[in-house]
Amino acid sequence: MPQDTEGFYSFVERYRTAMSGERTGDIVVDSFSELSARKSFRREWTDAFLKSMEMDITVSDYGTMKDLDEYLFGSSEVVGLFMARIMGLDEDSYPYARYLGRAMQYVNFIRDISEDLQLGRLYFPREELERFDLESLEYGEVMGKKDNFISFLRAQIGIYREWQSTAEKGYSYIPYRYLLPIKTAADMYLWTARVIEMNP
């Protein structure tokens, strides 16, 4: 904080320049542009990613899970789609790839509550907080309603596990040499969720 808003929009402009066929001198942008062309990434995936990154500048909280869906798609589901395309997976795997990205992102939200609050962000839908009679996730509020917070957090872990379970149905599409690191990463997220669940 403060967020580098100018830097973000400059990055987006470099990306658009690279996608028009010009080199920008930015190794990240130019390399991504080359990879995007080589692997035939859909332009709307990257546009959705940049839209979600912009939402981190313009949006501080979300009312409902439906409101959060757009952010989740661009910030995490498209990462699963990029990876599926890089690995050359059948398009039938794409819904599961999206769920894996979404599930991992939700654990990030659960793990990073304190850090995100310091950045002025609340990623959990307000309707979820209201369901457990929480006004916010600020320390003072949580300490005054510990049981509510524990129930809230365990419910969010339940949402994550449901998405993760759906994602795992897509493991059959992934060749073993790719599945091993992906499943290892997913297992680490499962472990993180278990640790938090034991002592929210």
Rank of each mutant, 00 (worst) to 15 (best):
Q3N: 06
G7N: 04
F8Q: 01
S10H: 15
V12F: 03
R16S: 00
G25K: 02
D30H: 01
D30S: 14
S31R: 15
F32S: 10
E34L: 12
L35M: 00
R42H: 10
R43D: 01
F49T: 09
I57D: 00
V59E: 01
M65D: 09
L72K: 07
S76F: 08
G80Y: 10
L81P: 06
L81G: 00
F82L: 09
I86M: 06
D90T: 01
Y94V: 00
P95A: 10
G101R: 10
R102Y: 05
Q105I: 05
Y106D: 03
V107C: 14
N108S: 10
R111Y: 04
R111C: 00
D112S: 03
D112K: 04
D112T: 01
D116G: 02
Q118G: 12
L119F: 05
L119W: 04
L119I: 03
E127G: 06
E130V: 09
Y139D: 14
G140V: 07
E141R: 06
V142Q: 01
D147S: 13
D147E: 03
F149I: 00
I150F: 13
L153R: 15
I157H: 06
I157Y: 11
G158H: 07
E162I: 08
S165H: 12
G170N: 08
G170E: 01
Y178S: 09
P181Q: 02
T184R: 15
M188V: 04
M188S: 08
A193Y: 01
A193E: 06
V195E: 14
E197I: 02
N199D: 12
